Simulated scan of single mutants.
Amino acid sequence: MAGVAHMVEISDVDDPRVDDFRDLSRADRRPDRPGGRGLVIAEGVVVVERLLASPYPVRALFGVRRRVEDLAEATAELDVPAYVADADVMARVVGFHLNRGVLAVADRTLAVDPAELVARSRRLAVLEGIGDHENLGALFRNAAALGVDGVLLGAGCSDPLYRRSVRVSMGHVLRVPLAHLETWPGDLKMLRDNGFRIAALTPRGGSKSLRDAGLDQGKVAVVLGSEGPGLTDEAIEAADVAVRIPMAGGVDSLNVATAAAITFHALSGT
């Protein structure tokens, strides 16, 4: 098809040209698993389009013909192969039937320097102990929608570029800058040194109500923790203020991505 660069038909399940897409239900190419290659994997036309528009260098596409053709405009100038197979061959390569019909893989770019991200930002999310990939994906989607400049990953966080996180974020994890903090919670000092007010989100007693915390003023970093134990005492003590979302009686917490969305909206002042 004109407009899709390097379209290549794949009929052999064992064709080595599609090894980047092989057995994703088992290895998923995570760098922290045996054999993992650390590739970024996008699923579906919308998410693949966002990968193509991101800083991550695309290696190849793989899908059924109709879905690859849907990407003709986005791939017209792309100098990588677009592998095409029928749904059965694709399912046998990937390891499961893919309803979205198309995948793309990319290399990870060099990690962003957290100091550089902090220096160019006004509103940041800082995460501690968020291990659920779906929560991470939803949180990044909320950050993109509500104008958060970047996400800093502290201790105990899972990989936000894991395939499930990318999918749940609808590809927005690929556009929100992220960086890893090496020393936790000591690196929060870097935020304070750059003029940030650090707000720890926690339902514990004595926390200031979100509506009264004034988070729409100046540079603000919101620290969010895992749904179970929440933020550690060390993280809360390292913050400038502990903030809670007012809730009706009988409910003591929210899903972390939901809590993040409410708080990110408060940062905007709208």
Score class of each variant (00 low, 15 high):
139 L>R: 12
143 A>R: 15
176 V>E: 04
168 V>K: 07
56 Y>D: 05
161 L>K: 11
124 L>M: 14
127 L>I: 09
179 A>M: 07
170 M>C: 08
139 L>D: 05
128 E>C: 11
111 A>W: 03
139 L>E: 04
92 R>D: 08
192 R>C: 06
57 P>D: 00
59 R>S: 11
108 R>M: 06
67 R>F: 13
126 V>F: 07
103 L>F: 14
151 V>P: 10
76 A>E: 06
100 R>T: 14
164 R>L: 00
184 W>S: 02
145 A>E: 07
165 S>Y: 05
100 R>K: 12
173 V>R: 14
113 D>A: 00
77 E>N: 08
184 W>C: 10
120 R>Q: 13
58 V>W: 03
156 G>Q: 04
181 L>K: 07
153 L>T: 02
171 G>R: 01
93 V>Q: 02
117 L>R: 11
118 V>L: 08
118 V>N: 00
181 L>A: 07
121 S>W: 14
132 D>P: 01
71 L>I: 07
172 H>D: 09
170 M>Y: 10
153 L>Y: 03
141 R>N: 10
141 R>G: 04
139 L>Y: 09
189 K>G: 15
80 V>K: 07
147 G>W: 11
184 W>N: 02
69 E>T: 12
79 D>L: 12
170 M>W: 10
63 G>R: 09
135 N>G: 00
120 R>P: 02
169 S>L: 03
169 S>A: 10
75 T>M: 03
190 M>P: 00
158 S>Q: 07
149 D>T: 08
121 S>C: 08
82 A>G: 07
116 E>L: 15
187 D>H: 04
119 A>P: 01
106 A>W: 10
64 V>A: 11
156 G>C: 04
98 L>D: 11
60 A>N: 03
135 N>M: 01
137 G>D: 00
60 A>S: 07
169 S>C: 07
116 E>N: 12
128 E>S: 13
106 A>S: 11
128 E>M: 11
55 P>T: 01
140 F>H: 15
160 P>Q: 02
85 A>T: 06
137 G>S: 03
154 G>I: 10
140 F>N: 08
122 R>V: 12
152 L>K: 07
154 G>A: 10
63 G>L: 02
75 T>W: 08
146 L>P: 10
144 A>E: 10
190 M>V: 12
126 V>S: 11
84 V>R: 05
190 M>R: 13
183 T>R: 11
156 G>F: 02
61 L>V: 12
58 V>E: 04
102 V>D: 14
185 P>H: 05
180 H>K: 08
188 L>I: 14
71 L>M: 03
131 G>A: 15
64 V>M: 09
184 W>G: 04
87 A>N: 09
59 R>C: 04
94 V>G: 03
136 L>R: 00
87 A>E: 13
108 R>Q: 12
68 V>K: 03
144 A>M: 11
88 D>K: 05
118 V>R: 10
184 W>F: 12
141 R>W: 09
71 L>V: 03
124 L>D: 12
148 V>Y: 03
114 P>I: 11
189 K>Y: 14
141 R>K: 12
107 D>V: 15
146 L>V: 14
57 P>M: 06
174 L>N: 08
129 G>T: 01
124 L>A: 14
184 W>Y: 05
59 R>Q: 11
113 D>H: 02
130 I>Q: 00
76 A>M: 01
165 S>C: 09
72 A>S: 05
90 M>R: 09
165 S>N: 10
170 M>V: 06
